[in-house]
Design a binder for these strands. Structure first.
Length: 554
RNA sequence: GCGCCCGUAGCUCAGUGGAUAGAGCGCCUGACUACGAAUCAGGAGGUCUGAGGUUCAAAUCCUCACGGGCGCACCA
């Protein structure tokens, strides 16, 4: 049982199944699904089991439904039924019965919506994992918002969530970062480096800032004497500074991690070599053209992958494999990777190596976070890391604000490319959907303030007085909240929460425009106050799960 | 060329094999002597890219075509 709505659903389903058994059809149970209809005006719950079962029972759907007529009379949650269309059965739930959700919420406002569907399963969520070679771009922000909200919602759904950021602080790119730093240090000593800037070395302006920091820290180092073999160490120094910047930016964005997993530490532990040995032992590593290849094609990948290059060094893929081995060795039930759009060729490879190492690859889930294009004044804002001109996550947060940025980045299905409309996000006005949702809380807080000033005595709450259509709509939505969270958690789909919050806000604004709360007879006033407080609780909780603030005044 | 993702209203996008395909923005018409108008009520706007197929039922599943994005190194 995950909610009051679910209780009604289960009761109805059980009743239908019992009746089918009575009629002599004991094998149709799985066809009986009671669902929330996709559109309004089709009842509060609906089932199409008669359509699904028609063929097997050799009876037209509506005739089958005729047998279901009298079986609802003693179910307190059902107020009415209706047969519609070719054979749908729609249920109207008892408003008074559903309204009990209000005291349920008010008893535990901070935890309403929590469920145990995750059964305490341990989940490792890896997200962002931006390279520490430059500022984070927007797609990292999307991964941050999605990963963080998934972590929050999955925790609410009863999973034990561990959040991790994998830091690629080793390898060739770090050496190149070190080279860039060395060049900028030489520039500080008066050398012209621009005209001879090498290919593949980050020219970004942020390296100049790093050079200034480095010189302040190490005034004794003479840049001209820096040799090539010192680039990795320089790069590591720079990478750690950049990583700290990422951490600061993400924290500001309300995104935190339980662990920053260092690739360098992983390499130093010898884990990559251990993976090589394990694959050799299992016979999945073959020597060809002087290199060692992982036979990924045996596990469904397009081609085999080099792991040990002919010069004896390891490809980047080996530490990644070792990292995943480490994840599985830590005993997680689910290993979820949120990867950037440039990684989809990589998914089969990592899945292959996980399987080759003998881990249950069905516990590995890879979610590709798709590209974000930023639009300003209807024009595409170009991002180019190479040229050093791009929209950094920091700039986006600065320009749009944390709340709108998170809201917009969560609004779309993560695996589809999206456009981020900067103009809309920046709007401080009525057209901005973030404020639409936040305004709900501000209005209710305002009513509650005035209620306290009235000093009117509280009377016992009787939620059965809430019979207006707008009140009913709110009650049904409040009852749906726990299931929304379950769906977000299980489908790894935060956009459903955003949609729900927008719907709840719409229902509240409609109610608020139509009906008054405070100038009512004491009993109705008390009931509406309870309703408003319940809406506030769910609104606040939902926003919190999205990492968005609920201002008391706007 | 191969692989992955996508194609739904003017724009940006939801959509769980079900009923008359939804929302926001934009456009049009109305509503404060009012607990907050950052709001509400209503309207116009669709061959769900196309063609086949599976199904009682397809935007949804399958095949093909077309269009778009991204990826396809002994780089990371």
């Amino acid at each position: 049982m995950i909610s009051r709505l679910d209780e009604a659903r289960q009761a109805i389903r059980q009743r239908i199944i019992e009746k089918l058994h009575d009629l002599g059809w004991p094998t149709l149970d799985e066809l009986v699904q009671v669902e929330v209809p996709t559109e309004k005006g089709r009842g509060d719950l609906t089932t199409s089991f008669a359509l699904k079962a028609a063929r097997r029972v050799k009876m037209p759907p509506r005739e089958l439904l005729g047998h279901m007529d009298a079986i609802w009379s003693d179910l307190p949650c059902v107020a009415g039924t209706e047969v519609a269309g070719p054979g749908f059965l729609n249920f109207t739930l008892s408003t008074a019965w559903m309204a009990e959700v209000i005291p349920d919420i008010l008893r535990h406002p901070q935890t309403y919506g929590n469920t145990a569907v995750g059964q305490g399963k341990r989940v490792l969520l890896e997200y962002v994992s931006a390279n520490p070679t430059g500022p984070m771009v927007i797609v990292s922000g999307r991964a941050a918002a999605v990963g963080d909200t998934l972590a929050r919602v999955m925790s609410a759904a009863g999973y034990q969530v561990w959040r991790e950021f994998y830091v690629n602080d080793a390898g060739g790119q770090i050496a190149r970062l070190g080279q860039a730093l060395a060049l900028r240090l030489r520039e500080l000593e008066g050398e012209d480096v621009e005209s001879t800037w090498p290919e593949n070395v980050y020219p970004g302006a942020y390296v100049k800032e790093l050079a200034l920091m480095y010189r302040a820290e190490h005034p004794e180092v003479l840049a001209q004497s820096l040799a090539e073999d010192e680039y990795p160490a320089l790069g590591a120094w720079a990478a750690e500074r950049i990583r700290q910047g990422h951490e600061t930016t993400l924290k500001h964005f309300r995104v935190t991690f339980d662990r920053w997993f260092s690739e360098r530490a992983l390499r130093e532990s010898g884990a990559p070599e251990a993976v090589i040995q394990r694959l050799k032992d299992r016979g999945y590593l073959v020597e060809r053209e002087g290199a060692w290849w992982f036979t990924a094609t045996r596990f469904g990948d397009d081609k085999d992958r080099v792991m040990v290059k002919s010069d004896g060094s390891l490809t980047y893929f080996v530490p990644d494999a070792a990292y995943h081995a480490d994840k599985f060795d830590r005993g997680f039930d689910y290993v979820i990777d949120l990867l950037g759009p440039d990684h989809h060729g990589y998914v089969n490879r990592i899945r292959a190596v996980v399987e080759a190492l003998g881990y249950p690859s069905d516990r590995l889930e890879v979610l590709i976070i798709q590209l974000v294009r930023v639009m300003r004044d209807g024009e595409l804002v170009r991002m180019s890391k190479r040229g050093g001109t791009f929209v950094a996550l920091e700039d986006l947060i600065e320009e749009a604000g944390i709340d709108p940025a998170r809201f917009f980045l969560l609004e779309r299905a993560p695996e589809t490319p999206m456009d981020f409309d900067l103009n809309l996000a920046k709007l401080k006005g009525p057209d901005n959907p973030v404020y639409y949702v936040q305004y709900v809380g501000a209005r209710i807080h305002s009513v509650l303030r005035q209620w306290r000033q009235m000093g009117a005595p509280a009377v016992p709450v009787d939620v059965t007085l809430l019979q207006e259509p707008e009140e009913r709509q709110l009650i049904i939505l409040l009852a749906r909240f726990p299931e929304v969270l379950v769906r977000v958690a299980e489908e790894r789909a935060p956009q459903h929460l955003v949609k729900f919050m927008t719907e709840l806000a719409g229902a509240f604004h409609a109610f608020y425009r139509q009906h008054r709360i405070l100038d009512q007879a004491p009993k109705l006033r008390q009931a509406r106050l309870a309703l408003a407080e319940a809406v506030l609780a769910v609104n606040t909780r939902g926003l919190e799960l999205m990492g968005i603030e609920q201002p008391q005044e706007m």
